[in-house]
Design a binder for these strands. Structure first.
Lengths: 212, 212
DNA sequence: CGTCCATCGCAACTCCTTGTTGCGTTAGAG
DNA sequence: CTCTAACGCAACAAGGAGTTGCGATGGACG
């Protein structure tokens, strides 16, 4: 199907549609941030986008599809993985990038991914793929540090990375405290200290490597 | 008002009401765990409780009040704070108690507190008071460890405790992995290693005490 | 500059859930 | 057994989810 890019005589006058589509998706994110998924109404989204309700339903099958599209588009940003040569700097930078990514738009949007909208199978998939991709791409950061001798042999990248993001998501979802660079630096410090102590060395079960 | 306990001639035949009330609250928690706050309908709750819809509305003003009551009752369990004489055992036990508390009923109920229902001011208050109370009561666990010389001087109890619960809530809310004792032990190991490295020493800002 | 057609606005509709009201019925304390 | 608070039931208004048909509009192309 090359009818998309080739200017072969009148296929799709998508001049209007693109702008409307973008406006509706942006309005959806704004509404999600303000009232949350449970209280999100299609009419409010349409009104905020300067568009009629039926226009929304013409392009999206139902409310869920709309929310899925809006959130999917929002997380479709592939963050870079730092590589400074020092594991402490790498972790600190990685955490700061995550904090920035979570706070670029309204903070409420990111939290929505983990609220009731997360019960939608599509959103759960988006989340799964997001973390799988990030962990896969950030793993070399850890293995490089092990090769440099900065971290113990057998350090499990996934365990370490989960420890790095845990304090950040705790503030976002549980304690509802603001996210800033200090948050990221603190998370990096915790994880680095634990990693140097060998807490993240791979083992059969996932848990205690500590000699109690 | 002693009319409550004294059997002074016909004041309140609350025989039926109590049972109905408990049944409705239990049904609400079950529904929350199954379909979530966003999809919770009063009729489904009433039907599950074997009660008519109007009966629910007679006792609770609206859906929000019902959910608030059900969740408030559910978290009204004051967990004990361990004191074994060893900080490693204390933290491990504290984490295990939290994991148990989060998984006693359906796992979904605890997560509901942090979903869209958390936008209700009353639920936010319940959460705030829950953590404030827990941190206040668990703080001596940390200060005792400092006095024993098991942790560095100036270790901030709140920072340490947040680090302890962060990996647990990450699994509950973000990665949706099951919670077990291994999860708790791992969280305790991370926090203990970081604490011994002095990451949680109090400072002006909240964050970097690490000499990078 | 004018045509043409996809897209949008609009009104009216059905269905479902919230929340309310009035009346008849039942459970249970005395 | 009696009496009353609490419950079941049917019917109701209000509001949001989706749907449909028709008329208006705006942008791509000739």
């Amino acid at each position: 199907m090359d009818a998309q890019s080739a200017p072969a005589g009148r296929v799709k006058p998508v001049g209007r549609g693109a702008k409307v589509c973008a406006a509706v998706l942006a309005a959806t994110l704004d509404e999600l941030a303000e009232v949350g998924y449970a209280n999100l109404t299609v009419e409010a989204v349409a009104q905020r986008a300067g568009v009629h309700k039926t226009t929304v339903y013409r392009r999206w099958k139902d409310r869920e599809t709309l929310v899925v599209d809006a959130l999917t588009e929002h997380v479709a940003a592939d963050l870079p993985i730092p590589d400074t040569g020092d594991v402490a700097s790498d972790l600190r930078e990685l955490a700061r990038l995550l904090v920035t990514h979570l706070t670029v738009t309204h903070l409420g949007v990111a939290a929505t991914m983990f609220s009731d909208a997360g019960r939608l199978p599509e959103i759960a998939d988006v989340r799964r793929r997001f973390f799988a991709d990030r962990f896969r791409r950030a793993a070399p950061l850890v293995t490089r540090a092990v090769e440099r001798g900065q971290l113990p042999e057998g350090t499990d990248p996934a365990l370490l990375l989960k420890s790095l993001i845990a304090p950040i998501y705790l503030r976002l979802l549980v304690t509802c405290e603001p996210l800033d660079d200090a948050t990221a630096d603190h998370a990096a410090a915790i994880t680095l200290a634990a990693a140097r102590a060998g807490v993240f060395r791979a083992h059969d079960a996932h848990g205690q490597s500590e000699t109690h």
